[in-house]
Design a protein around this nucleic acid. Structure first.
Length: 880
DNA sequence: TTTCTCACG
DNA sequence: ACGTACGTGAGAAAC
């Protein structure tokens, strides 16, 4: 068996990786890492598949090549590299150095030439050659012994296209050498190789397939067809010959290369491991850890406890600790143990079992929490159902604290907290337990389990002061201690309370839908002349836009868009489309709401959804399992479903929502005199906006003017763009821009406020709410127009949306506390961003209304009043 | 697992 | 030229 060498085109793979799926990823120091990460993923994949004996990476040098001397406009492979990519080049080389993989460079030549030359030399020495590159230029080098591999990332996974010479011939219809001539004819816009003007891809391939070389094409120019191509070729001969020189890879450049140095060695060295840690490339750490298998010294102090007296002793000492970290470990409502730490040498997992019952552990945990000292936990809301404690000073949630410090993370697990705030890389839950449940893992791999849980305890214990320091430094201590921490208890109460849902009525609603859906289904098949899966956008697209040749509005990545806004434009004239829209609506209601919600009704006849506090980028809550924040209300048929959400026997719902809270916040935060005054005057905010922006007396504002003003108001809150507004109102961008300009002329304070948000976000890297909540906006420093524009809109929207979130959180805590402290039986049960739903006990309605009014109104003191709309009803339908 | 679509504020 | 309004979660289909 011949030995094998893998040669990689460094920049082209970096480029591929940079523009791939991980755009924007950075480590904690703000260093962009997505390209390095993608590069290493591809490298590892190739190594796994090829198992080469030799390995090297070629890079271009920033110097003119012979191609630049031949042709001024030549761009080559290093054109316009964005800063975020550029900064990753030295890092990548550092990793390669640490892995003892040689990099090869040669001034005056491109990586392609180096690869071509090395491939030629290696072939001579009877090595099998594998060339890895992101672009197809290298295909001219394919041979029997040289395989070209082109990685492509689609749908998150990287697949590699492989080409030997026969594959090139098969798939492109030309040989590798002929490929050069094709390129000479058609040119290459990315390298700025000119080609022959007037000859495109199709013609170029056809010509070379017929004549096999550029020279032959010109020798037989007379017989070339079509006439258009002949004409083009006549005028472009010089260009074609120049292009061929530019496109041809130099296979004999004077590059120095030692095969022995390229021999694959350890690769996963301790140095490389350290770099992975620094870059926070977590998913790669495991691969690299082989080279530096050092367990953290902390692990030697981990102790698994399963005897009663041992546990008692630990609890006794923990009660005296100034600071403890803990997490009650539970699964499916059952306590499996307690992770507890109160010092570097005091790290325990106390397993439930025998005399150490769940209740006992929960009781002791509650005592610890109430001991009057500091207790950090990883997830308090998860623990509260077992603890039976009320709001307790000194009990602090590390996950929520970390969320405030950076709300953009997707999770706040102990290993991430440890890496970010302690600089300590520890194995994750997945590393310890894989996909096993806690219960399974406890019986099958107890050691790993104890390790995982002890890390939780220690992390909770150790990150606390660090989190608190940073919160203080960033001015978020109050936000954390006075809003977010108390809110945990309110959310826990809401989850425990749940909301009653009439199972039978819900089933009946679903049955009605089913009948209607089946009827529609038949009609749709009838009208379209065949049966197909109406739920499949792909199949539906084929029916509508190919079979029926309806005009398609836009395309998605994978095909025609069949979204409602497209179909609605076709519906008036197409009964089929109208029926499909109706079908969509009905199936949505059935699957997500009728059937979906039914699955969550518990034995107590109530749905206990979760309210998540650490998900959104802006500070809002989110609702899952099920989502109770997106129950239909806009359409009549969907709204019906709210009839099944009912209060307990004898109780009523009191529903209160803030009226236009975001616009009021905008008025306050911008300080725009005219807007503030306007909101003091009128109830109808959109109408007064219309009146002022369109210079029309308030009483004479037309419905259309009001509608337009409303859209502009929404646009302002979303981070205005002419494009977005024009889409929303189906007007031209010019018209939309006119509206926006008129708005800003009317309210110059808003304009300067929004401008200031963007510029300060650019300078500081984050925006803040009225209460100090922060959101980093890394997109603003992107070199990508799209991402940067997104960053600008985020900078405008987040302070507004986030302040609204702050205010309703304050109100929630206030309402929840007062209902309890005033001894009422009424309970807060839902929050829907600007709305609170209370289930009011018999005889308490008036008091509940007062509490809601006072707490919601008093939650913030802005320069415009906070208006609250309130309604009482016997179902969630009636309160709308 | 990702993409599309659609429900809400 | 680029190709979007801000923030979410869930179900079904496609990969």
């Amino acid at each position: 068996m011949d030995e094998k060498i893998v040669l990689i085109d460094g920049y082209s793979i970096l480029n591929r990786a940079f523009y791939g799926i991980h755009a924007g990823m950075t480590n904690f120091e703000g260093l962009h890492t997505n390209a390095v990460y993608g590069f290493l993923n591809i490298l590892l994949k190739i190594l796994d598949e090829e198992k080469p004996d030799y390995l090297a990476v070629a890079f271009d040098v920033k110097a003119p090549t012979f191609r630049h001397r031949l042709y001024d406009a030549y761009k080559g492979t290093r054109k316009g590299m964005p800063d975020e990519l550029h900064e990753q080049v030295p890092v990548t080389k550092e990793v390669l150095r640490a892995m003892e993989i040689p990099t090869v460079e040669l001034p005056g030549y491109e990586a392609d030439d180096i690869l071509g030359t090395l491939a030629a030399r290696c072939e001579k020495q009877n090595l099998a050659v594998v060339l890895v590159s992101g672009d197809r230029d290298l295909l001219q080098l394919a041979s029997q012994k040289t395989k070209i591999r082109i990685p492509r990332t689609k749908a998150g996974t990287t697949t590699v296209e492989d080409y030997y010479d026969t594959d090139v011939k098969e798939r492109l219809g030309v040989t590798p050498l002929e490929f050069i001539d094709v390129k000479a004819l058609m040119g290459d816009s990315s390298d700025n190789i000119p080609g022959v003007p007037g000859i495109g891809e199709k013609t170029a391939y056809a010509l070379i397939q017929t004549y096999h070389s550029l020279e032959a094409v010109y020798e037989n120019l007379e017989s070339v067809k079509p006439e258009r191509a002949k004409k083009a070729l006549m005028g472009g001969r010089e260009m074609a010959e120049l292009s061929k020189t530019l496109a041809a890879i130099d296979r004999d450049c004077p590059v120095e290369f030692s095969l022995e140095e390229a021999r694959v060695g350890a690769l996963f060295t301790p140095e490389a491991y350290e770099i992975m840690k620094r870059l926070e490339l977590k998913s790669l750490l495991k691969r690299f850890e082989a080279g530096s298998r050092t367990t953290n010294s902390i692990e030697k102090d981990f102790l698994l406890v399963d005897d009663f007296s041992g546990a008692e002793d630990i609890f006794a000492r923990a009660m005296k600790a100034e600071r403890a970290g803990l997490q009650l470990i539970s699964e499916k409502g059952e306590i499996l143990g307690l992770a507890l730490s109160f010092g570097k040498g005091e790290i325990y997992f106390i397993e439930a079992g025998g005399f150490l019952t769940g209740e006992y552990l929960a009781g002791r945990t509650a005592e610890l929490c109430l001991r009057g000292k500091t207790t950090w936990v990883l997830d308090l809301k998860e623990m509260l159902p077992f603890l039976g404690i009320e709001e307790t000073e000194g009990v602090l949630d590390a996950g929520v604290a970390a969320y405030l410090l950076n709300p953009l993370k997707s999770s706040y697990l102990y290993d991430e907290l440890s890496a970010e705030y302690l600089g300590l890389t520890v194995p994750s839950r997945n590393d310890f337990l894989g996909k096993h449940s806690y219960r399974e893992a406890l019986s099958e791999k107890k050691e790993a389990c104890a390790g995982c849980f002890c890390y939780m305890a220690y992390t909770a214990f150790a990150v606390g002061p660090e989190l608190m320091d940073r919160l203080r430094k960033y001015g978020m201590e109050k936000l954390f201690l006075e809003i977010e921490m108390p809110l945990i208890y309110s959310l826990s109460h809401m989850e425990k309370e749940g909301i009653q849902v009439e199972r039978e009525a819900l089933r009946a609603y679903g049955d009605t839908l089913k009948v209607q859906i089946e009827k529609l289904e038949a009609e749709i098949y009838e009208l379209s002349g065949e049966t197909f899966n109406i739920n499949s956008p792909k199949q539906l697209g084929v029916i509508l836009f190919e079979k029926l040749k309806l005009p398609y509005g836009k395309k998605t990545k994978t095909g025609y868009s069949t979204s409602a806004d497209i179909l609605e434009k076709l519906a008036p004239e197409q009964p089929l489309v109208a029926k499909i829209l109706e079908y969509r609506q009905l199936t949505k209601l059935k699957s997500t709401y009728a059937d979906g919600l039914a699955a969550y009704i518990c034995e107590d006849g109530r749905i206990h959804g979760k309210f998540n506090q650490t998900i959104t980028a802006t500070g809002r809550l989110s609702s899952t399992e099920p989502n109770l924040q997106n129950i239909p209300v806009r359409m009549a048929l969907g709204r019906e479903i709210r009839k099944v959400f009912v209060p307990r026997e004898g109780y009523v719902f009191v529903d209160a929502d803030y009226s236009q809270i975001e616009l009021r916040i905008l008025a306050h935060m911008s300080g725009d005199k005219r807007l503030i005054e306007a909101y003091h005057q009128a109830q109808d905010i959109h109408r007064i906006t219309a009146s002022q922006v369109f210079h029309t007396p308030f009483e004479e504002v037309t419905p259309l003017q009001r509608r337009n003003a409303k859209a502009v108001n929404f646009g302002i809150v979303y981070g205005i763009s002419a494009f977005g507004l024009s889409e929303d109102l189906s007007i031209t961008r010019k018209e939309a821009l006119d509206y926006i300009n008129q708005y800003f002329e009317t309210y110059p304070g808003v304009k300067s406020f929004l401008d200031h948000l963007v510029s300060s976000a650019r300078e500081e890297g984050y925006v803040s709410t009225l209460y100090g909540r922060r959101r980093p906006v890394p997109e603003l420093s992107s070199s990508n127009f799209m991402q940067r524009s997104f960053g600008e809109r985020v900078a405008m929207n987040s302070p507004i949306q986030g302040t609204a979130a702050d205010i309703i959180k304050i109100a929630m805590v206030g309402v929840d506390r007062r209902l309890r402290r005033e001894g009422l039986k009424s309970r807060l049960i839902l929050q829907i961003h600007d709305e609170l739903l209370v289930e009011a006990a018999p005889g308490e309605t008036e008091q509940v209304k007062t509490i809601l009014q006072e707490e919601m109104y008093g939650a913030a003191s802005l320069s415009v009043p906070l208006e609250i709309d309130m309604k009482v009803g016997n179902s969630w339908f009636e309160t709308k």
